[in-house]
Every structure is written in C-alpha cells, then in structure tokens.
Design a protein around this nucleic acid. Structure first.
Length: 594
RNA sequence: GGGGGUGUAGCUCAGUUGGUUAGAGCGAUCGCCUGUCACGCGAUAGGUCGAGGGUUCGAGUCCCUUCACUCCCGCCA
C-alpha cells in the first residue's frame, strides 16, 4: 500500500463509508467551529471535506495549521446527513473523520490566497507561479493543454504523420523576426540562433523522403509581447507533407481541427468545411486578413456612387476625386434605433482617428428615400444603386466612411467589430474557422519603398511557372494560406517552392543575389538541387488553440511558466547576469556595464 | 521606440473640494463557538500611500520627473 494515500481527494463516495482511508493533500480551507473543525483537503483531482472534533488529541494542532500546508490524514469515511451534503463537489456526500494526521510540508504565510477565484496582479502571480498554478481555473487550463496536445499527437498519428525532432541550436535567418542568439564557445565570434520555427528543417525532412512530418515544436522569436503572444517562446503544431497541393493540406487541417474542437469544447462549429476567402476579398469585405466570421456585417465599396451627378455629398465627392474610396456597412432593420446609436458610432469613429462615419436610413413611403443627416444628398436612383451594391433593404441603415485605401480598411475593420458588438450580433457560442488564401508573394515596404517578401520566402508562386510575369512582382500570388478562427490568426502555411532556379529568381526580386541566397540558405537551396519532392505544410499555434478552447483572452492563462511582458521570468530571475569567466570562455565582452 | 491604464496593509480594493490620528473585506495572531462548505462573533498586529522633487500653512489627493506592472501601436517571413 502507498505510504501517503489510499485514495485521491476526488475518489471517495457513499460506497466507501465505513472504510479507513489515507489521504494526502493541501489544506485548501478551514472552517473552525471551536469544538468542531472542517478541513477541505485538496489535491490535483479534487476536494474532500475532513472533520475533527475537540475530543481528538490532534484537534489543537490541526486548528493552528496554516492553509496550503501539505498533510497526510488518516480517518474513517462517514456519510453526511441530507442537509449537509455538498452538491458542488464530487465527494460531497461523504466526509472523512480524522483519526490522526502528519505534516508533510509546512507553509509560510501566503503572499496571495489560493482558494479564491479573486483576480490578482500578474506580477505576484508570476513570481509565485507554483502557488498560482494550484488555483482551480488555471490548474484546469494546464491539464486541458496537456490533453489537447496528447489528442493532437494521436490524431496526427492516425492521419499517417510521424513526429520528428529538429535542432534547437541552429543558424540565424535573415528574413522574419529577430532571432535569439547563443554564442558558440568552440567557434569564437560565431552564434547559433534558436529557431523561429523549424521551417527549413521540415522542408529538409521532406527532401529526405519522410513524406508526412509533424512536431509539437517550440519556436523562439525575440519580439515584443501581446496578450495573445508570449515573449520569447511558443509552440506550433508544425506539419509538412510531400506530393500535395493546397487542398490536401486543407483536408488534413480541417479534419484535425474539427475533431479537436468537437472533443474539447461545447461551442458549436459554424462551418465543418471551412470557407475560403482570398486575401484581397478579406481586406475588402472585412477590412482585415483575420476576419471574425461570427460577425455577419460585411463591408462594401460604394466609391462609384460618389462620381454620380445626382449625389451632392460634396465632402466625399471631393475626396473621391483625389483618390480616396468610400466603403459602407449595412445594419439590418435599424430604422427605429435611437439617434444616440448612430451618433455614438460617429463619435466613436472620430475617437479612432477617422473623420467620423456618415449614416443614413432607407425609407419607403411612395418611393425609396433616405433619412438622416446626409440623406438629402442622395437621389432616389442613387439610393437604389447603393442598395443593390450593399444588399440593403428598406428599414436598414448604412454607415459610410471615406479615406485612402489602407486607412479605410483599418477604420472599417474596427467599425465592423464595434457595430457588431453594439448590436449584439456576435454569437459567443460559436467557433468560426476560415481559410485566407491567395496571399501576394511580395509587397512594397512603406518606409524603404523596396519590394520584399510579404510572408514566407519559400512559398510557391501561383500559376504556370513559365508564364509568371516577374516584371510585375506585386501581382504575383503565392500558394500561401492562413487559418483564422473568431478573428484570431491560428497559423499560416504554404505550398513550398522546391525549384532552385525559381527560388533564385524570387529572391533576386527581393534584393538577394545568388551568392547571398547560397550563403544564407545553404542547407535548403543545396538540398533542393538533389531531387526535392513538391511539398507543403502549415503550423497552427498550439497556445492559441488552447486559448480558444479554454475561453481565455490571455496566453499566459494557458502557459505554465510564462515570462512577463518584458520577457523576464520573475520566479527564476531570467534573464540574469553571468560572471566574467563565462564571458571569457565565450570570447564575449559587454559594452553595457551595470 | 510611442500611446493608454494601474500602483494605498501579505492579498483585493475604498479614500469626497487639498484639511485632524489613512479605512474595509480576506489573510495573520489571540479569544469564543458542534454542521460548516466564502461558517459566524469579538479583539490585536500590520502602511516609506511605487520612488524622487515641487506648489502649499497643510499633499494619498495638485504639478514635474522617474520606476514597475499591464493593454495597445510599431515589430511578429
């Protein structure tokens, strides 16, 4: 028999009444009635109420015991009277009458309570993470994460994928995020980089003939944190397949995500077959390349209306003449909404840095007309044209904004969220997945005005390779795709470019000559020259998947030992200074002295 | 690098127009209490009001500087 326990704290039931048991766990809560003391004993599995009366010689010492002390309790299982049954806990029909106890681990005065659901400061939570992790919600989140990962591994195996590890110490890559660097002792002056993702390795795995690869892969990027972005490290379900087209990757990921989300959440999936939206269309219709499809509002371009003779809204007409565009959002059947609703949106838009949002409501007495501050500027025919473009009906209202394209996208995207929330249009009990496809291969850097890769430099351009017009690089689309759920970007992936000549050509457009490519991507480019299969893959973010399943808004709620926003581990004191000997051995000297 | 928010007891927070000795709940300590499950009751201890400077007869409160945490922008192929 185990020295510490015969049962865990979520195991005992009515059928165990009369048995002598051993329980070990933490003192979650005490309720001291003077001659009668209740103790909630907690472990990983649950809570069992233990009870001791004054007659017992251990009463005094148990009465004085600190919360969160670890104890071993020996006692008898007794049933509770009907009035005292606790339906909140699984063991609520019984309690353990204490015979004797032993302290296994003492506890100092707590820097924060463990048994409450009360929120407290991140700083304290991270410093005492081992206490924080004892709390119910986060404890369950971490267990959920483990189960999700185990489930995914199993599903991937069932789909014919095998897991392979790739190096943690690798080389710095010129594209993408800032690298974390590790000095090399044996190679003075040289550095390893931690992988931002196992991108090149997984392609090399395909070239090596392994066909279907996956890995729950740690990724390291030295960028600033956000609520949904850990500083430093995060995990991806990294996968890659040979001899596939885009559609084959989609099928695998849809199967996996549908199964995973059905297994771990009660929320409904809006689509089992994920809709595909082109990058360009997404920016137009949703103002963003990560649309929240739970929100039914759609953005429409009505710029042409403002070239008409029978429209007299001069402010917009003048802006349109100088290259601005006009887009609108229709709200269904809002003719009776109070003036404050409309003005509220207008005021809000101004606060977001837009010049406000004009609005009108469509009416029909004998004929179609528009009510509202700008209604009078539109002819009957022009209103009918707007209705045609935007699918608006009598009784609907329309919000307009006018600006240069990029800024207009920004404000319309925000407005879509804002109006959707105001009108309560977003169903919190849904997961709405979609694919964003047809990303452009290149984009123009706003500052340098140079052409650069818009996403992954290893992506395959679309179309017949012989017919691609490299003189118009901004028109080249890539087999590059993202998966989005409820407005959160879960992953991006691509069919890869496995043709070296094409790779050199694309890199030359982004300003890298052959020599540079050979040097920076020697492993990759060399491998592609020795018989590379067509291949592609994707890498959904594990942390964000668990966040969605746990219904959390912050990634630290699903990460066991996260760093804070300044990329410090307050519990382990990382990063820390190192001593002179270590520096010397690494051939480093510091410019910044403390 | 930039913008917003927060900072008062171990924890969560209140603190009025600038005005006497800075409060509450939880936790801690001591006492009372035999059916609680956020047990109840009474008492005690616990404060550099994030730090520094300024205005003022007087600053937790107003001003300036600065630090920490957090959210956002930039950044994240």
């Amino acid at each position: 028999m185990n020295k510490f326990r015969s049962h865990n704290c979520n195991e005992l039931r009515i059928k165990d009444v009369g048995n002598k048991v051993l329980l070990s766990g933490w003192i979650n809560k005490k309720r001291d009635h003077g001659n009668l003391l209740f103790i909630d004993l907690r472990d990983n599995y649950g809570i069992t109420q233990c009870i001791i009366e004054k007659e017992n010689q251990n009463f005094k010492s148990l009465e004085k015991i600190q919360l969160e002390t670890v104890v071993k309790i020996e006692g008898n299982v007794v049933n509770r009277s009907n009035e005292t049954v606790n339906k909140e806990i699984d063991t609520g029909e019984i309690e353990v009458k204490i015979i004797q106890f032993e302290i296994l681990g003492t506890c100092k005065e707590l820097p924060m309570p463990v048994f409450t659901d009360q929120e407290y400061a991140e700083e304290v939570r991270l410093k005492y993470r081992f206490l924080d992790l004892r709390r119910k919600k986060i404890h369950e989140n971490i267990i959920l994460r483990s189960k999700v990962i185990a489930f995914i591994r199993n599903e991937m195996n069932k789909l014919g994928f095998l897991e392979y590890q790739t190096p943690i110490l690798t080389s710095s890559s010129p594209e993408g995020a800032r690298d974390f660097l590790v000095p090399s002792r044996l190679n003075p002056g040289k550095f390893y980089a931690l992988p931002q993702a196992p991108q090149q390795f997984k392609q090399l795995i395909m070239v090596s003939g392994f066909d279907k690869y996956f890995q729950i892969a740690p990724c390291f990027r030295d960028e600033d944190a956000r609520a949904d972005r850990s500083p430093g490290e995060f995990y991806q379900l990294d996968l890659e397949m040979s001899f596939v087209e885009q559609e084959d990757v989609f099928n695998v990921v849809e199967t996996l995500l549908v199964n995973t989300f059905k297994e771990f959440s009660n929320k409904k999936l809006m689509f089992d077959k994920f809709p595909k939206i082109s990058y360009t269309e997404s920016l137009l219709r949703y103002g963003s390349d990560k649309p929240d499809l739970r929100n039914p509002l759609i953005i429409n371009d009505v710029t042409v209306i403002f070239n008409r003779e029978d429209v007299n809204f001069e402010i917009f007409k003048k802006l349109v003449k100088s290259g601005s565009k006009v887009r609108c959002i229709v709200t269904k059947n809002t003719k009776d909404n109070p003036r404050s609703f409309f003005d509220g949106i207008d005021k809000w838009a101004k606060e977001q840095g837009a010049s406000g949002m004009a609005y009108l409501t469509i009416e029909k007495d004998n004929e179609i007309s528009a009510r509202g501050p700008i209604g009078k500027f539109f002819s009957k025919e022009s209103i009918e044209e707007i209705m045609k473009i935007s699918n608006a009906e009598v009784g609907d209202s329309i919000f307009f904004a006018c600006n240069k394209e990029v800024e207009l996208q920004r404000i319309m995207s925000l407005a879509r969220d804002k109006i959707g929330n105001e009108l309560n249009l977003i169903d919190e009990n849904l997961f709405a997945f979609c694919w964003i496809i047809d990303y452009p291969m290149f984009e123009k850097d706003e500052h340098t005005k140079k052409i650069k890769f818009s996403h992954n430099p290893f992506s395959m351009p679309q179309g017949d390779i012989d017919k691609i017009n490299f003189d118009k690089p901004l028109d080249i689309l890539a087999y590059q795709y993202d998966i989005v759920c409820n407005g959160i970007e879960l992953s991006s992936g691509a069919i890869r470019n496995h043709i070296p000549e094409l790779m050199y050509k694309l890199f030359s457009i982004a300003g890298y000559d052959k020599k540079q490519v050979d040097k920076k991507f020697s492993g990759m480019i060399n491998a592609l020259s020795f018989g590379a299969p067509p291949h592609g893959g994707i890498a959904p973010g594990i942390d964000r998947i668990v966040m969605l399943l746990a219904n959390e808004k912050n990634i630290r709620e699903v990460t066991m030992f996260p760093m804070n926003q300044n990329a410090q581990d307050l519990m382990m004191n990382a990063p820390s200074e190192i001593n002179e000997d270590q520096l010397k051995e690494l051939n480093l000297s510091l410019k910044v002295k403390k």
